[in-house]
Amino acid sequence: MALLEVRDLTVVFQRKGEEPFRAVDGVSFDVEPGQTVGLVGESGCGKSVTSLAIMGLLPKRGAKISGTVKYDGTDLLKLSDKEMRDRRGRDLGMVFQDPLSSLNPVVPIGLQVTEVLERHRGLSRKEAMIEAKNLLDKVGIPDPNRRLKEYPHQLSGGMRQRALIAIALACRPKLLIADEPTTALDVTIQAQILSVMKELVQDLGTALVMITHDLGVVAGLCDEVNVLYGGKVVEKAMRHKLFAEPRHPYTHGLLASIPRLDAAPGEKLTPIKGSVADNIPWEHGCAFAPRCPNALDVCVQVTPPEEDQLGRLLRCHNPVVPGTPAAEEVPV
């Protein structure tokens, strides 16, 4: 049994007098201890909502969650508020996107680290302070004694994200969810943060759910990748397979749109046509069909089922044939 089993997770946002909106539509995936699973997709595909649903952080009113999220056998969605609060930080950790706004600006870093330790591990302030120093050391923050007394605005962006990771890992959660942890950082710092996370996941055997729109991060970190589109998983495969032979036209488009070092000078980038706004509802066919270069008539009539084909889970009527060059060039 996997550490985290997400089955058929569906999140519907409903407001009075408005059409309900399915942000996440039957997403399923497993995460084993020590494994890194990626959730990939563009803005608005349901990545972050999935993570918030697992953590139980979606607002009670307005968001209807169904499906199961089994952590070590218990369904997190069925736990009470209090039980869930006891688990957050202790069993489940989360690292957010923007390290500056995710730290409390008026509380020193030290107190923000010790707060979790005191809460979940019952340490005294003194013991927690020593542990906090070790934690900052572990995530590679130099001179931790000084940093513990400083406020978030006195730290650099990379150090803030390291501090956030230290806080998230303070109680050694078995599951860590990272919601675009590198998006707000510049490229050199991104690499450092990723290597810190990789090391910690290996050392502590933490299961990691990596949410990102950056395929570079996926390539460097993830074992298994779920590509999300319009709230559904459209392709799920092991990393190597996915990068070597993307079969879903969306995955293929994502990979083709990355600028390549070996491209000829002056060669144009190949974007995916259109935007999420062009989606059709899944009930009427494939949400990606209006933007898809491979679209057939059937794509706008029948919802493609999720099928185990070509050595992966795929939701497509007309998958990309291996060896197809990047989608047609679109004048920008």
Partner: peptide, 24 residues
């Protein structure tokens, strides 16, 4: 964001109000 982050760490409600919301 930082209140959401504190909630995600399981910080108790009282501490969230008096340490994270009120001073800010």
């Amino acid at each position: 964001d930082h209140v959401l982050a504190a909630t995600a760490l399981g910080v108790k409600k009282g501490a969230i109000v008096f340490r994270h919301m009120l001073p800010n």
